[in-house]
């Protein structure tokens, strides 16, 4: 079972994985993602709920619903990432693996996966670089402890290390900087001198 509070599989080696579909099947599906899944106004919660119910062919239970609700309340980049994941997990050749799992585990995997936008900005997922397509698909698969068909667990781990390191160091540095800035901003806003504010002249 995927533990949502565990370290993110994007940053950690996986202990084991189940074999899933061919990589190409999912990269093709990624680049063909319908525009509807990339619209900000889409109700993320509804898209995810539909996708997870399709995968397991059963209504979601409370724990999965609450994970779906969390994803629906995330910031826009993460929400859009979750919507793309919803499109990918309904790939029929994933069904034998995901259909046998608890939906809450798939939802937890998607939650981990959404962190990818901090490292690979969403627009790059759909650009001309096949390495980025592969990185996105491998990221989603490993968040669900799945490896592409035809690869051993060790091969899959090696390939992830290879494909995910190209842009990773700069992107991770930026993501860390942004996290640090968020903390600095919270501190600056909480400062009593900032709270005194400045005189205001208009009422808007």
């Amino acid at each position: 079972m995927t533990d949502r509070t565990a370290p993110n599989p994007l940053e950690q080696p996986l202990a084991h994985s189940d074999e899933g579909p061919w990589l190409r099947t999912l990269t093709d599906r990624l680049v063909a993602t319908p525009q509807a899944f990339l619209r900000p106004e889409v109700v993320t919660e509804a898209v995810l709920r539909d996708a997870l119910e399709l995968v397991t062919d059963a209504p979601l239970e409370a724990d999965a619903l609450s994970a779906v609700r969390r994803l629906g309340g995330a910031a826009l980049p993460e929400r859009l990432a979750a919507q793309v994941a919803a499109h990918l997990v309904t790939e029929p050749s994933l069904r034998p693996v995901l259909g046998a799992r608890a939906p809450v585990d798939t939802a937890a995997g998607i939650e981990h996966f959404t962190a990818l936008v901090g490292v690979v900005p969403l627009r790059q997922w759909f650009g001309d670089d096949p390495d980025r397509h592969e990185e996105v698909v491998r990221a989603l698969l490993r968040c669900m402890a799945i490896r592409p068909r035809g690869e051993t667990h060790a091969q899959s781990e090696d390939r992830w290390q290879s494909v995910s390191t190209g842009l990773r160091s700069d992107a991770l540095r930026l993501a860390a900087l942004e996290q640090q800035r968020a903390a600095e901003l919270a501190k600056a806003l909480a400062d009593k001198r900032a709270q005194e504010a400045a005189a205001q002249y208009t009422h808007v």
Binding site: A75, L76, P77, E78, L80, V117, G118, V120, P121, L122, R123, Q124, W125, L174, E178, R181, A182
Partner: peptide, 14 residues
């Protein structure tokens, strides 16, 4: 801007 960076905004159209 983190929000825009994570979306991968290239220009105004995005």
């Amino acid at each position: 801007v983190p929000h825009l960076r994570r979306l991968g905004i290239r220009d105004w159209r995005d």
